[in-house]
Design a binder for these strands. Sequence first.
DNA 1: TTGACCTGGACAACCAGGTTGACCAACGCT
DNA 2: AGCGTTGGTCAACCTGGTTGTCCAGGTCAA
Lengths: 158, 158
Amino acid sequence: MSSRSGADLALLLLGSYRNLVDEVVRELATRGYPDARPSHEYAIRAIRVGADSASDLARRLAITKQAAAKTIAALVERGYVTTETDPADIRRKNIRITDHGIGLITESTAIFDEVRARWEVRLGAAELAELETQLAQFVGDSPINLDAPGWAAGQELR
Amino acid sequence: MSSRSGADLALLLLGSYRNLVDEVVRELATRGYPDARPSHEYAIRAIRVGADSASDLARRLAITKQAAAKTIAALVERGYVTTETDPADIRRKNIRITDHGIGLITESTAIFDEVRARWEVRLGAAELAELETQLAQFVGDSPINLDAPGWAAGQELR
DNA sequence: TTGACCTGGACAACCAGGTTGACCAACGCT
DNA sequence: AGCGTTGGTCAACCTGGTTGTCCAGGTCAA
């Protein structure tokens, strides 16, 4: 009975995302990270897997370097990362994740997985896995990298 | 093989939503509505099903009335709705959707459905329907109304 | 009828998370 | 030595929200 409309589908997707993320943020707050925003988590994850400068982070998250710089400033302010100018290239400012930052993504990952596990209980493991595979199809043909939240879809390189 | 993480799931949901909505906005632009934003569509839909004042719209979208007022101002500016003070209650400003506004949601609905139809081809009708049912479960236990994009989750009444 | 409250709207200031645009200093390559 | 590319920064702006404050108009009870 596929009586649903395309507009409903959009709302379902957005709603699911918000429910999931809100839950994570709420839980993070109770575990000692009250000032953590979703964008912070995504940024730190990107840094962890290799984005070691503002420009680099910008490319990975598919945002402007100015936006990346702002995010990094916020991360520094909250003590999640530190920056220090690269001795080999004065221009660069290398980003390093602090223990506090490691703690954040560790907790965050755990909570994300906990929530996912709850969903798995309701849906069944096979069903959730299939749902993910299906969603991946819609995202997969996207021209931009997957591990980024802020893609501006249909934009050229910056 | 559910090797995916909870964080990935979030990105899949967000990515799917963005892909869908971006496609709609892009297509709307080519069909004579270049200035239409997703929030405009949601607002007009809410107005169409009964939100006839700013406060009312605010309640339905679960946003503040100030935010609703701003949205309405944007809609008026673009010619999608008009407002006129209620003769029976001087305070109220009744919202009426213009023909242009009707055109917008008509086109928008059609495009949303077109994109959904393309997804249906890739997934199969039964599978997409099931996916929607599953997503509805995650959204369904949300305390706030479904037809709203901007819910602030875990907030009291305003 | 008069006061006490509730409700619709508006003003102002602010925030997150982006965007453009202009610019400069440092690098790297020929 | 010179020129183009790259990393970073300042400034202004945008969207879609948020608080907080305020007031005029409506509603209801005593």
